[in-house]
Amino acid sequence: MKLRAEGLGLRVAGRWLIRGCSFELTPGTVSVIVGPNGSGKTTLLRALLGLIQPDEGKVWLDGSPLARHSLRARARACAWLPQRTELPWGMPANELVMLGRAPHLSAFAGPGRADELAVTAALARVEASDLSVRDVRTLSGGELQRVLLARLLATEAPLLLLDEPTTALDVGHALALLELTRELAAAGHGVLMSLHELELARRYGDQALLLRGDDAGGYVLGSVNEVLTPAVISEVFAVGAKIIAGELRFHSTVT
């Protein structure tokens, strides 16, 4: 299962967020999208999911355009974790995860044994089995993110698209989540996520797509080590950047 963008162009209010971009999301890899605030990371992810139509180019799922696939087929291929999910009170975590089974259920029959097993397995995969009957609104940020990720895994989609999954997490939980994405990739998932933390993107990603945010749709695409270099980062983010002891360090250039 492969998701491919070809000559992708996205425009908001007359300015190009990205233009003429072609890349591929393949199983077994972690790809990161980085860029300044407002550079269009979320918009790009939404276009790849088919939630909005690109202004130029096309998104392909395997051999045919995304739009040709049914919504159900797309749901079984790509699972989506938005930046924020507002949830109601009183919903147990396992019911939330069960919602991820929807693309596999027939219109009228309720979930069966296989679906319950998938939910249990998904919760176990993110080490959240003990949270299964907890009210989702009482979970901590880190716990909730794990349960939401279990919802994606219950879908059994090979491709996972995550929008800034670490933003609401403290550093410990953020690292644990990124470790998990690496494990999922090792198990055959293709992971594409937008990230704010450039050093973490460098450490956990394989492929990187950097949106310049220059209104002309400029971008840099390549392996993380090619893209996230001090030179590119200083230029795009207007900061000083250096690699010290193998890690990116930043300093303000405003004097």
């Binding site: 939404r46 999911l49 939630l51 049914s70 919504l71 159900r72 797309r74 749901a75 790509c78 699972a79 989506w80 938005p82 999910t85 507002e86 949830l87 109601p88 919903m91 919602l99 991820g100 929807a102 693309p103 259920l105 219109a107 009228f108 919802r151 879908t155």
Partner: peptide, 23 residues
Amino acid sequence: WALHRPLDLLVLGEETAATLGVD
């Protein structure tokens, strides 16, 4: 009643529901 499943999925938000197959 026939709409029960898509209505369930809407709690995740409209766009997330769409990524789970809701038109």
